[in-house]
Design a binder for these strands. Structure first.
Length: 429
RNA sequence: GCUGAGGUAGCGAAGCCCGGUCCAACGCGCCAGACUUGAGAUCUGGUGGGCUGCAAGGCCCUCGGGAGUUCGAAUCUCCCCCUCAGCGCCA
């Protein structure tokens, strides 16, 4: 959420930004917000004047009564006020809601380095690491491979939960845990505090971190309860300090969340749709930072570096793209995607997303930093993936597949698999 | 799920029965200033949100949320939410 004061005092800054996004409807919305805000302040001033009069009269009545004087005249004047006040309050509330809704729908201000573009095809590659491996055999689609190795059962998962769910089996379960465990250890070594958050959140908290329209699209709701399954641990970590003042001495707060996440919207595009690439349920280690505004761009690079380091350690080639205006979404001021090389798909595909949300998310969550009783400011928040399995699993399965159908375990994961260096699957039954 | 006790500012805690000196006492913490070589101690002022004003300041709102009674609600009435304790159930 943008600062109303910016809308009031410097709307040109926002207007220029919206132009970069090619968002004429948002520009129109901005004009409306400015107008609503003006009307809101006017109504507020009128309402306050009436309330002031009411407070005065109330006091006068109290004094007159104590002095034993007649209060009828005063009461008569006072009796007329509540109706007027109530009418104005209604108007004020209405306008306030409009302003807030408008602010929520206006996107964050972009960083100057965000490339202009219409969709993900115009994201700009900023770096590339590793040499895609070439093999002299045909790589099998990972879903097919897993079924052959009996390391995953999509059929039975579909039977009991529907498409988008899977039974991981045998060594694939351990590989999944190894990826998570490796990433979590890496983050902890960087000084981040590990967090295992609630997997369910109340709507009031969720509204602070998610676009209202997303509820219907991506969130699973528990029937009959005010609880939603988390779509990423970014959400419970972001909401962790909702309505709080973080002591400035505690900044930066660096967290790394481990959680299973649930998303209704999984779509389907690209080759090898069957498999782990897009699931209703998956695991993720997440990076999350609350910091001083002046430090957030340094942190943004640091989170990206963490993501890169993890994929380098796995020896999986990747590239980093600077996500363009058409693809960046509303919350981030700048976003890098790290795209791993998927040799079967012959494509770089997103495995890590790294965003600086500046003060946009924190303001909406009503998180401030500073000293209680002293000066306060809105901290910046950043989030990035460290490791998302299933996608990380797919990357390993494609990059480390052998001609005989076995899968080599990346070196850094072996300690997490009791030294095992190859996965062969369960024996056929 | 049942029963009970609660929800007051960053935290602790009074006030609620008996509506108006509550623009919420007091303590701790924190912030600013004074004193000090520095720190500490001490003293003074401040301590949430908003509107208005160049500023000094002025005003409004805020006692879990909402509705009601009233000229006036932290205080009275009703509904809801949440937390804690005990019991039940349970990995």
């Amino acid at each position: 959420m943008l600062d109303v004061r910016l809308v009031r005092e410097n709307p040109e800054v926002i207007r220029k930004d919206l132009a970069k996004r090619h968002a004429p409807d948002k520009a129109k919305l901005l004009d409306s917000v400015i107008q609503w805000d003006k009307e809101w302040r006017k109504a507020l001033a009128e309402g306050d004047a009436l309330k002031r009069r009411r407070n005065e009269i109330t006091k006068e009545i109290a004094e007159a009564k104590k002095a034993g004087k007649d209060t009828d005249k005063l009461r008569k004047e006072a009796a007329a006020l509540p109706k007027k006040i109530a009418a104005l309050d209604l108007r004020i509330e209405e306008l306030e809601g409009q302003v807030r809704d408008g602010l929520l729908r206006l996107p964050n201000l972009l960083h100057g380095s965000v490339p202009i573009g219409k969709d993900d095809s115009e994201n700009v590659e900023v770096s590339r690491w590793g040499t895609p491996r070439t093999v002299d055999f045909e790589l099998r689609p990972h879903g097919e491979l897993l079924e052959a190795l009996r390391l995953a059962d999509f059929e039975r998962a579909r039977k009991i939960a529907g498409a988008g769910f899977v039974y991981l089996l045998g060594d694939l379960v351990r590989l999944d845990q190894a990826l998570l465990s490796f990433a979590l250890d890496y983050m902890v070594k960087q000084g981040f505090t590990a967090v295992f958050p609630p997997f369910l959140m109340r709507r009031a908290a969720y509204e602070g971190v998610v676009d209202l329209t997303d509820f219907e699209n991506v969130m699973y709701k528990i029937d009959g309860e005010d609880l939603y399954l988390i779509a990423t641990s970014e959400h419970p970590m972001g909401a962790m300090f909702m309505d709080e003042v973080i002591d400035v001495d505690r900044l930066p707060v660096t967290l790394t969340g481990l959680a299973t996440q649930f998303r209704r919207e999984i779509g389907a595009h690209g080759v090898d749709t069957k498999g782990l690439f897009r699931m209703h349920q998956f695991n993720k280690v997440e990076q999350f930072v609350f910091c001083r505004p002046e430090d957030s761009w340094t942190w943004h690079e640091k989170l990206r570096a963490n993501g890169e380091a993890i994929y380098r350690a796995l020896e999986i080639p990747y590239r980093v793209v600077n996500v363009c205006t058409g693809d960046i979404g509303t919350v981030a001021a700048k976003k890098y995607d790290i795209e791993a090389w998927f040799p079967r798909q012959q494509a770089y595909r997103e495995v890590i997303s790294c965003s600086n949300c500046t003060d946009y998310q924190a303001r909406r969550l009503n998180i401030r930093a500073g000293k209680v009783g002293g000066e306060k400011f809105v901290p910046h928040t950043l989030n990035a993936t460290a490791m998302a399995t299933s996608r990380g699993l797919v990357a390993v399965l494609e990059n480390f597949q052998n001609a005989d159908g076995s899968v080599t375990v990346p070196k850094v994961l072996r300690p997490h698999l009791g030294g095992q260096d190859v996965i062969r699957g369960l024996p056929p039954r």
